[in-house]
Design a protein around this nucleic acid. Structure first.
Lengths: 145, 145
DNA sequence: TGCTTAAGGATAAACATTATTGAAAAGAAT
DNA sequence: ATTCTTTTCAATAATGTTTATCCTTAAGCA
């Protein structure tokens, strides 16, 4: 989670103005590990920023992604999710409760090289999504039987 | 690409009726490697099936996915893409021309095991997406400069 | 062939996301 | 500080994809 000063500098350097709304969207996103949707962030920010518009949340997220302070997740749901952790890590979604978690400590270098070699593409990015049942839902199911 | 008889049987076995529309959607999808959207399939089918509705294409695709004859791709675009090849393979999208290709001959078993171990999830599925510049666009760029 | 029920077609609706527009605020120069 | 220029905000309309509705039609089966 970056400091306000770093986020501000990053915005300015890329030609975007620094506004309270953009900083607030970044902070709300960076504070959580829940990979929220735009709508969720909007509702979360509303108490502190009663005049903030949903369109502003979308616009801010778009800019944050553009300047490398966030990434967009496309997990096959009806809406995108967002993550302020832009490090190269896969995501996993529970098909029971819908939660999305980070997958840590996975080295994707070898896989990427194999794909580049196999396809002839010059690769710039990737998104790895896994689906299954999370530990919590697994234990729930066991106790219910 | 499965035969009509096999598709019909699969539909019947899962309690779905066999209709010309569903067979046509499967055939159109299985014939191509372009990973089309619903809209694209709709336009492609229209000459042969003038009365087919776009809603029917969507419903057919949904059923095909449910019975394991197709899969839905969520590549971060504004619409889903579909693939009749349900084997476990990654996809790669060209950020210049937008084409989506299959990635073949990649073993994802080890990666999946690592993720399962790291997260504690019981994994059921995954989608691996790569992004970059395809060989055609790479050579185009080189000749232009 | 007729019966039952699911499926198709046409269309409206729902939903997420983007574009538009006038007012307000940010950043720079004075 | 003040003014000026330009971007951004908020509100709302618009867009485009996907889903639901509703009535008609066709599939499966006795």
């Amino acid at each position: 989670m970056l400091q306000v000063q770093e986020v501000s500098e990053r915005l300015r350097n890329r030609g975007f103005k620094v506004t309270p709304q953009r900083l607030a969207v970044y902070e709300a996103l960076a504070r959580t590990k829940a990979h929220p949707r735009a709508e969720t962030l909007y509702k979360e920010l509303r108490p502190s920023y009663p005049t903030m518009s949903l369109a502003t949340v979308y616009k801010s997220l778009s800019i944050l992604c553009e300047i490398g302070l966030a990434q967009e997740l496309s997990l096959g749901e009806d809406a995108f999710r967002y993550d302020a952790d832009t490090s190269d890590h896969p995501h996993v979604r529970c098909i029971k409760c819908g939660r999305v978690d980070d997958v840590e400590a996975i080295d994707t270098k070898e896989l990427t090289e194999e794909v580049a070699e196999s396809t002839g593409y010059r690769l710039t990015d990737h998104q790895l999504y896994f689906f299954g049942v999370c530990p919590e839902c697994r234990s729930k199911k066991r106790t219910l039987h």
